[in-house]
Design a binder for these strands. Structure first.
Length: 549
RNA sequence: GGCCCGUUGGUCAAGAGGCCUAAGACACCGCCCUUUCACGGCGGUAACACGAGUUCGAAUCUCGUACGGGUCACCA
């Protein structure tokens, strides 16, 4: 028996399977030509982050566009950083944003698919089987260095201005013998398994990134860690094994991984795996002071996707906005296909930006206003109450105490050919329609400077005589026009503009008076509709109060 | 610092040697429409980081500089 094989048995005595076992267990997928198998592999270290949502979206539409598969995999190899409920938060969050998952974790607790388990902490035996094979082939070895020793090596390298890391002559245990290893093991010394890298820094590894194009980097010569001392793999190793066994065709992830690609390619080749295609997604940036930087969980509220729910953004609006960042041709497509789902958009990785986009909250607002404007009053009622139930129970109780009235309020200037585009998110609704609810209404009969108080009062008196809650828009305005001349106001705006000295104002000014009396504001949606919804009693009462001053 | 990547108006971006006197969207400004405000329509301000080179011709190719970003763990 060779030393390598003895070493492998010494290090991993309980592993009795061989890679062949798993190769047979997870056969190639039966998919049509061109179908892409992609995944998002979050680590449950916190809540769903905007960047993860974005990467998931890009993966999702890539799978959809190619008739492929999108799966999730939980990368929980770092138990120290794990957060309770993290899986549920992330996977559940994706679901709430309408990102459908074909395979892997489909909720916080359920997984489906033939290539699982989809959680790295449950795949230890698989990883160890492959590591054992690498050791047998002399491509991996145990390293007994302590954190202190590694630190000392680093300091020495820095002092000598040499490239830091565990490589070449600095790789202390690279040529450890079976006997030496056995002795240390018998002493109970912990160890990690490192790759015995055959790479040479002077060689170049070239790969074609589906987003960034051709990238050339020095070959990896670092004997990086494959298996940590707890027997769990590092990201690099788990990535190679999992994406091979799960038959991922395109690895699409954040571009912070680019610098690790030489390690990954080396691993795939050494293991005899087909190297997948890589697509590195640029991060969403944020302006901080004058500097652009990657959006950060710690500093930016909008980094946590939960922020958007609290603000009352529809998840569809956030997705729609993210699509405009993801694909430069998406907005053109949207104009041509206003009613289609973004899922019908033919996504092309080539249309992704090579550099990171600044998160533009103003643009999100615009996108969102357009989305909201397309909703019916019933839909708005559903969304607003769902939002208020969680974030504004007072408002929720008022809305649901009289659903028909609430819906009528939301129907104002809505269920019409050209709906208004005023509301972007649900937390604006209460303020926007505050005058429609007695609980929130604040009377304020402050008139514009060009209208005399006396005229306003006289107008309101005259108007309350002829007012009828049954009036349609035309009749409603005609009544104002009829009163206008009696107060020396022009009935028609054009008359007034042609001869402004002859009048005190025009009918439009009088409607403003009425508007202020009814709503306490100068600007509102259609006043006639507002008065119809408010009803006769309230209108008359508010007019009366205004007259009284 | 080493190694990668990037740099077109305030923002997102089109652009792959002549079609660029550089598209479109958001934002901003003006006008029109209009009972207010929105909507809508029309118009406007505003950009190829800098310097060399290749070429008849460069936003597009090459090199350098500057600036920005990423990465250098038993974290992902």
């Amino acid at each position: 028996m060779s030393d390598n094989i003895k070493l492998a048995d010494l290090l991993l005595p309980n592993i009795d399977k061989t890679p062949d076992y798993y190769e047979n267990l997870y056969p190639a997928r039966n998919l049509p030509e061109g179908a892409r198998v992609v995944r998002v592999a979050p680590s449950p270290t916190g809540y769903l982050h905007l960047g993860v949502l974005f990467a998931s979206l890009v993966n999702r539409i890539t799978a959809t566009s190619s008739g492929g598969v999108f799966f999730t995999r939980i990368e929980d190899t770092d138990k120290k950083r794990e957060v309770e409920g993290g899986i549920e938060d992330i996977i559940g969050g994706l679901a709430r944003f309408g990102i459908t998952i074909d395979e892997g974790f489909i909720s916080g607790t359920e997984q489906k698919g033939d290539y699982g388990p989809y959680q790295q902490s449950h795949r230890a035996e698989i990883y160890q089987t492959y590591v054992k094979e690498l050791i047998r082939q002399g491509l991996a070895y145990p390293c007994f260095c302590t954190a202190e020793e590694l630190e000392a090596t680093r300091n020495e390298q820095e002092a000598k201005k040499i490239r830091t890391g565990y490589h070449g002559e600095w790789a202390k245990h690279r040529n450890i013998t079976f006997e030496e290893a056995k002795k240390l093991i018998d002493e109970g010394k912990p160890f990690v398994v490192r790759l015995k890298s055959p790479g040479n820094e002077d060689n170049k590894v070239v790969f074609e990134d589906a987003i960034k194009g051709k990238i050339e980097m020095p070959e990896n010569d670092e004997d990086f860690v494959l298996l940590k001392s707890d027997g769990i793999p590092t990201y690099h190793f788990a990535h190679a094994i999992d994406d091979h066994l799960m038959h991922t065709t395109h690895v699409m992830r954040g571009d912070e991984w680019i610098s690790s690609v030489p390690k990954h390619i080396q691993l795939f080749r050494l293991l005899g795996f087909k190297v997948p295609k890589f697509a590195h997604i640029s991060p969403i940036m944020k302006l901080d002071g004058g500097a652009k930087r990657k959006i950060s969980k710690r500093k930016d509220p909008e980094a946590a996707v939960h922020f958007f729910a609290e603000e009352g953004f529809m998840s569809e609006s956030v997705i729609e906005y993210l699509m405009t960042i993801a694909a430069s041709d998406f907005e053109d497509w949207r104009r041509a296909n206003p009613d289609k789902s973004y899922k019908d958009f033919k996504f092309n990785l080539k249309k992704m930006s090579v550099s990171g986009a600044l998160f533009d909250g103003v643009k999100l607002l615009d996108v969102s206003k357009n989305m909201v404007s397309r909703l019916s009053s019933g839909q708005v009622y559903g969304f607003v109450t769902a939002w208020a139930k969680e974030f504004d129970t007072d408002f929720y109780n008022i809305l649901t105490s009289n659903p028909e009235y609430s819906k009528a309020v939301f129907a104002i200037d809505r269920d019409v050919p050209k709906p208004r585009k005023d509301i972007a998110k649900w937390n604006e609704v209460k303020e926007y329609f505050s005058y429609m609810f007695e609980e929130y209404y604040t009377p304020d009969f402050t008139l514009p400077e060009n209208i005399a108080k006396e005229d306003a009062v006289n107008f309101l008196k005259a108007y309350s005589e002829v007012y009828s809650p049954e009036d349609d828009k035309q009749t409603w305005f005609n009544k104002i026009k009829e009163i206008a001349p009696t107060l020396n106001f022009a009935s028609e705006t054009k008359e007034y503009k042609a001869n402004p000295e002859a009048y005190k104002g025009h009918a439009g000014d009088l409607s403003t008076v009425l508007r202020i009396a009814i709503t306490g504001r100068r600007n509102t949606p259609d006043l006639c509709s507002i008065m119809q919804v408010l009803g006769k009693d309230k209108c008359l009462e508010r007019i009366k109060n205004a007259i009284r001053g």
